[in-house]
Amino acid sequence: MVSGTNGAPDAGPLPPGQASRPGPAGAGVRTRPPADLVGPRRRGDGIFRGLTLSAGIFVLAILVAIAVFLIAKSVPAIAQDKGNFFTTKTWDPDGSKVFGIAALAFGTVLSSVLALILTVPLALGVAIFIVEYAPKRIATFLGYAVDMLAAVPSVVYGLWAVYFLLKRMVPLQVFLADHFGWIPLFADPENRAGQFSQSVLAAALILGVMILPIIAAISREVISQVDPAQREGMLALGATHWEMVRMAVLPPSRPGIVGGIMLGLGRALGETIAIALVIGASFTISPHIMSSGNAIAANIAVKFAEAGSLGRNALIASGLVLFAITLVVNLTARAIIYRAGAVERSAAV
């Protein structure tokens, strides 16, 4: 998208200011144009173009600077690693110099994906209800409420989770362990379900609450943008309201909704404080979500202050991995959106 909008002016003909100015003699130019056909010098255009161009370059420059910084600090740290950085689960750079990203990356992805699974249906439900079913006043109020939820600082969510959510999750944990314990996800070998404890599940829940407003707000916006003519066309064919939503509203909204989900996933992957408060900081790779786990960003926040010089660089290396994960997520989202659009583009030929 960025390259498309930037490229358009270059691909087009000369700007009007230049085109109407007399060219060099020859090439069919016989008379000088009269004064009213000679365009004024449009300085504003040039300035504006320069400003937007530098804004675009600036963004790229920041991205490159961050990547360069991360790589420059990471490579020496990884070189001093006595373990394998990608497969080691422990994190002890300042002592035994054995440290690795495996447990952290696993916990980050697991908690974020769980959060998505919990949140996406709810967020879509909220969005569809606001646009399609709620009376106008309730829809407006609910819209504001969702936006407010998005504005709550994450540390507040974290504290709420610690002091309110964790102990109220115990019955849910017991229920899951008793009835669904045969699924590894809900197995409870450490007997933690019955007690007040930090866990990956708690982290996923609080992440879910945090990303709900993002996904709901974007989905609501996208759904409300669907052409009313599409809705009427489907209704006129004899669709019920839900059939209309399912067949005429959701399909064209899909790329936008996927984009919203990916934004939410991006936030979940990078979330720091709330996770640090509830996930429990254990360096294991285990599918048991009622046990504690860890995540990259939370680990950076917790360890950074007390880390030695290798410790800090090791943490930066873990940040590089997080950066790579989010990059992959974003590229995947782009690919999904692009492919959805490709069907229409191929037909437009």
């Binding site: 052409d227 489907m234 006129a236 004899g238 067949m247 064209p252 899909r254």
Partner: peptide, 22 residues
């Protein structure tokens, strides 16, 4: 009303084929 609309079809002013469908 849904049954009514299945019996009485409608064509609109602006062509409105469903864009994501073949």
């Amino acid at each position: 009303p849904v049954a009514v609309r299945r019996t009485i079809g409608m064509v609109f002013q602006r062509p409105n084929p469903f864009p994501t469908m073949s």
